[in-house]
Simulated assay, not measured.
Amino acid sequence: MKKINNTYIIVASIILMFSLKSTAQIVKAEIRATGLTCSMCSNAINKQLKSMPEVANVETDLNTNTFTVTLNESNNLSPKTFKEKVEDAGFFIGSLLITAKPELISNGSYILMNTNSNKSGDIKFQVLDKGYVTEKEFKKLSKSNKDIATYSANNEDDFHIKFIN
């Protein structure tokens, strides 16, 4: 009887271990930075982004100041990580577009501002909070979303998102 109980415990442990492994992850981030004046500025951001072990590749477009960050699987990054890295380099995010597994937005930190995503597979969305859009855009969004309590609260752990088709 003891051997059977141990077998159940081992099987239950294995099932629990695999169920805890989250597939909710960011696949790619497209960051448009503001405040850059030269290639050395973009190099500073590039170095900050590449310093993360979860980053597989960073592509830079100097014409648009856009950094496309491709991530390794099984990462647990949030938009806040990208904001911190860009700010550590001395710059700001003008827009942040994220491609992610659909399960990511079910964790409670993501608040949908629209619901028109009928796409299967990875989803793409823009983060609309302060620090993830330009100051001018944030003021406009604040006025149009003044009735949404979580938006005006400006909690750094809540991410208000809009699906991009």
Results as ranks from 00 to 15, higher is better:
E84I: 10
L16A: 11
Q25R: 11
T70Y: 06
I9F: 03
S22A: 05
T81G: 02
K143P: 00
E137I: 15
D129L: 09
A24P: 06
C38G: 08
K139S: 09
I148F: 00
L112A: 11
I15Q: 03
N114G: 09
P53E: 14
G121Y: 09
S142P: 00
I111G: 05
E135D: 13
K85L: 10
K28P: 01
D158F: 11
D129C: 05
L96V: 02
K3W: 05
K146S: 15
A44F: 03
E87I: 01
E84T: 14
L97H: 11
M40C: 03
K139V: 10
L20E: 04
F159R: 12
I93W: 13
T99A: 01
D157V: 04
K50G: 01
N75M: 07
R32V: 05
H160N: 15
L128E: 12
T68M: 09
I164F: 13
T115A: 08
V127M: 07
K136F: 04
I9Y: 02
K47L: 07
L97Y: 08
A89P: 01
I26D: 10
I105R: 00
I15L: 14
F91Q: 14
Y110T: 06
G108N: 02
Y151A: 15
G90K: 03
R32G: 04
F18S: 13
N46I: 04
I45F: 07
M1G: 11
C38Y: 08
K21E: 01
G90A: 13
Y8E: 02
T37M: 07
L77G: 07
S19C: 13
N63R: 02
I111R: 07
A29E: 04
G35F: 01
K21C: 00
S106M: 09
